[in-house]
Design a protein around this nucleic acid. Structure first.
Length: 213
DNA sequence: CACCAGGCAAGTA
DNA sequence: TACTTGCATGGT
């Protein structure tokens, strides 16, 4: 038992699930694309869309850039919201082209705040998508907040229910050591426990590894 | 059949 | 500022 509830939760989840090896992808570019495709979407559908892109040989920066909007939308169709996500992907590629010469390495070389500003300027990239890219593509020390994070931590009364994205993120950053590997693993573990035990509309159960924190 | 999924932006009052 | 709505497929 820790005096820090955030670390306590982390220890319990890591003991229960072990390492999660996120982000599940074969390349940084695949993570980048997946971050957009997974917006409000079941991950299983994202993998179908990713597979389409892979089969078409379009899971690379220049290949995707040269796709028509219509073709791109058709490939990513299984992930839902395909028309708007095709635009969002194009917007993101365009920003990376303009700011980083189309090289993800340049994005990694930028500062956390500089990269975040550029990402948030992209229409279709909000705080969660930006943080996912910053952490899992660029390896920056930021914490990804999603609906699962909010649900798990408010349901277990570690944070208040009405806490916005940056308020919740600040609590994590204030409570945890600045450790990229920890931020990476913790977010993945939260998703794991939420999917298994903290589903929407279901009450807390004592089978949950977080029972009694 | 209803409901949910690793959000975001635009519109309304 | 604080809601509300559109976007859309596929799994349970």
């Amino acid at each position: 038992m820790q005096n820090n509830p955030f670390l306590d939760v982390y220890d319990r989840l890591f003991a229960y699930y072990g390492p999660q090896h996120w982000w599940p992808a074969d390349s940084p570019f695949e993570i980048l694309v997946g971050a957009v495709l997974t917006q409000n979407t079941n991950w299983a559908n994202v993998t179908l869309a990713i597979a389409n892109l892979k089969d078409a040989g379009c899971l690379h920066f220049t290949a995707m850039q040269s796709l028509s909007l219509e073709s791109l939308a058709e490939y990513i169709r299984p992930s839902g919201y395909y028309n708007i996500k095709a635009v969002r992907l194009k917007n993101l590629l365009q920003m990376i082209e303009e700011e980083y010469e189309g090289e993800l390495q340049f994005l990694c070389d930028d500062s956390l705040d500089g990269a975040r500003e550029n990402l948030l300027r992209v229409k279709g990239v909000g705080p969660e998508t930006a943080d996912s890219i910053l952490l899992y593509v660029a390896g920056k020390p930021t914490f990804v907040i999603d609906t699962y994070t909010h649900r798990v931590f408010s349901r277990h009364e570690i944070v208040l229910e009405d806490n916005d994205y940056y308020g919740l993120q600040q609590e994590f950053l204030d409570s945890l050591p600045e450790d990229i590997a920890l931020f990476n693993e913790f977010h993945a573990l939260i998703v794991a426990v939420a999917k298994e035990f903290c589903k929407k509309g279901k009450p807390r159960c004592k089978e949950c590894p977080l029972h009694g924190v």
